[in-house]
Design a protein around this nucleic acid. Structure first.
Length: 622
DNA sequence: ATAGGGTTAG
């Protein structure tokens, strides 16, 4: 073998014929190895050879353990880099979401008079999608046509993806319709594109007319339903998929798990978990985290811990998820202990970890600990607090009644507080009746988040508490004028795998009569124990319809009654709500847990309440 | 080289 063949010969002989000393280049897995080869290459005088250097640059630019800056440096030293090298580099920048660089490289390719090939456009178009570069994307489309790749399937699929991401679904559709060879990716991309913008009917139509569905296309449709809260449809599509004997993969499993999470459907979630174990679907880091999250949010910390403890190696998301789970259940100290364990096991925390730790402190009233970790994250981990962290701190102080400190923190933030931060402060004002402060920030919150009806409701409630009915009316009018409606509250309960949903005063349930009778019985019993209805939330409610509904038939009470009817003595009753639990329901639930000797676990918008023997795990701190 | 999944305060 000629160990010193000139570069031109090497290039002509393509990939098979390196000098012996370059054997193994393809198998590099670390930068250290590749750098050794690079110095070999320089010694052999091949550092301008596109073929050899292309391989080196490819590793550096796109491999997991690569080094994009190093790739770029080598690229700059190439006298005549070819299209492959350009493409590879664009792909590298794309992976890092450095969109400007992708586009600049494309411009450079033209300047260098190198002809782009069909591999150039998929990455370029994808870059335009991610960076929402609409003009550039259209130009790229024009170039693609000019260079004659209009009929390249990969480019067409990426065009569809791009136009869908630009919200130009008609153009995505036009590309699709013009394709002579549609593959599974083309169909699936169109389904997801429609779904992304809420056109579920179109997505469904495309899905139905797809000739040979793959698991990815099933999943695209299932995920579409889940994301838009059509859980029933998601479950029935899932069933259909199983009857058609399509093999379920981890993506479908993940989509279904998130449906269970949203519904609080523990039994269903368990079933999917069991199915995954049986079917041999691989428990990768993402799927494990999804499962842990499902158990946390469906109210079973025990099962979540079981899965968490069984993980062979714990990724940062699993830790974050578990800490967040403890936070949500009001187990602040346990969350902090787990965080310490995480640090000991050398898993470096990130900003999300601290959101969870701080929210754990907030939910448990651990003010000193919260203060400590807020400083600690920057000082020991170099993580500068973001708006989420300020939000947690404002919530922590606000909930604890330290409104002045909360306000001071907002004033001293190094950047403009967003709706989240101010909203937390407004919420605290409502809880503690600080009209003056609430009045001063309420308008700002609404200005920053004008389409969130919840903001108006809180402000109106604050005014109502102060008896400022003119302001209540003004706020309500503003909300109505903007076409916003108060989010209707509902409660869900899953029994034998079926989720029932209740709204306050609703009669739609086939067993409504029995349920209402049970509510009456419940209230009868607990009144004997000293329960007195708390009518505060009725008085303050700004929604007329809601105001007329008797407190006693709030959705949560209906769901609990249904649970009492349908489950055996001693069984835990689990409820999920879309809003926060109201004061009266909270009060009543404590009594009910004692009167009927049941543990009642309620997930509200923010956290869990475990009612047991007349008490709640939140200690009335919420 | 292109499609589908996870953790984030109120």
């Amino acid at each position: 073998m000629a160990s010193l063949a000139p570069a031109s010969v090497l290039a002509a002989q393509a990939s098979l014929c390196y000098p012996k000393s370059l054997e193994g280049l393809e198998k590099c897995s670390t930068m250290a190895e590749i750098k050794q080869f690079h110095s070999q290459i320089i010694r052999l005088g091949l550092s301008s050879d596109n073929d050899v250097m292309g391989r080196v640059i490819k590793f550096c630019a796109v491999a997991e353990s690569g080094d994009l800056r190093y790739a770029h440096k080598m690229f700059e030293k190439m006298p005549h880099p070819d299209a492959f090298i350009y493409n590879t580099l664009i792909r590298g920048y794309l992976q890092c979401h450095l969109i400007r660089e992708c586009i600049l490289l494309y411009l450079q390719i033209l300047q260098d008079s190198v002809t782009p090939n069909k591999f150039t456009f998929p990455s370029l178009l994808r870059a335009c999608s991610i960076g929402n570069k609409i003009d550039e994307g259209r130009q790229a489309h024009a170039h693609l046509v000019k260079f004659g790749f209009e009929n390249d399937g990969f480019s067409q699929n990426n065009l569809m993806y791009m136009y869908a991401s630009f919200h130009s679904l008609q153009e995505a559709r036009r590309v699709f319709d013009n394709m002579s060879q549609k593959d599974a990716v083309s169909w699936t991309t169109l389904i997801s594109g429609y779904s992304q913008w809420g056109f579920l009917d179109d997505a469904h139509e495309v899905f139905r007319s797809m000739p040979e569905k793959t698991s990815a296309s099933w999943n695209a449709m299932i995920a579409a339903y889940v994301q838009h809260n059509f859980f029933q449809e998601a479950f029935s599509l899932f069933d259909e998929m199983r009857t058609e004997k399509i093999e379920l993969d981890k993506f479908v499993a993940a989509s279904m798990l998130s449906a269970c999470t949203a519904l609080g459907a523990l039994e269903q979630g368990r079933w999917i978990h069991g199915y995954i174990s049986k079917s041999g679907i691989e428990f990768d880091a993402k799927l494990s985290t999804t499962i842990i999250d499902m158990y946390c949010k469906c109210g079973s910390l025990e099962k979540a811990f079981e899965v968490f403890n069984g993980l062979p190696s714990k990724g940062i998301s699993s830790w974050n998820c578990m800490i967040g789970g403890l936070a949500m259940h009001g187990r602040g100290n346990a969350a902090i202990e787990l965080f310490k364990k995480m640090e000991k096991q050398m898993a470096a925390p990130d900003d999300i970890t601290f959101v969870n730790v701080l929210s754990a402190c907030a939910h448990s009233g651990l003010v000193e600990e919260g203060r400590y970790y807020f400083r600690y994250m920057a000082e020991f981990h170099g993580i500068e607090p973001k708006s989420e962290h300020f939000g947690c701190m404002v919530d922590l102080f606000g909930r604890a009644g330290l409104l002045e400190e909360a306000r001071k923190l907002v004033d001293e933030m190094p950047f403009e507080p967003d709706a989240g931060v101010l909203g937390a402060l407004l919420g605290a004002c409502k809880v503690h009746g600080d009209i003056e402060l609430g009045d001063s920030i309420g308008e700002r919150v609404i200005e920053l988040d004008p389409n969130n009806s919840g903001r108006y409701v809180i402000l109106a409630n604050l005014y109502a508490r102060a008896g400022r009915w003119d302001d209540v009316a003004k706020t309500r009018k503003l909300m109505n004028d903007r076409g916003l409606k108060k989010t209707p509250g509902f409660s869900m309960i899953e029994l034998e795998g079926i989720v029932s949903k209740f709204i306050a005063g609703g009669m739609a349930h086939p067993e409504a009569k029995e349920i209402y009778a049970m509510v009456d019985e419940m209230l009868e019993q607990i009144k004997k124990m000293g329960y007195v209805p708390d009518t505060d939330c009725v008085l303050y409610d700004i929604d007329e319809d809601e105001k007329e509904l008797p407190l006693r038939y709030h959705s949560e009470k209906l769901a609990i009654a249904f649970g009492l009817i349908k489950t055996r003595r001693g069984e835990t009753i689990r409820i999920s709500k879309n809003l926060r639990v109201c004061k009266d329901c909270h009060h009543a639930s404590k009594f009910i847990s004692k009167a009927f000797d049941r543990e009642i676990i309620v997930r509200d918008r923010n956290r869990f309440h475990h009612f047991r023997n007349g008490e709640c795990s939140c200690d009335d701190y919420w």
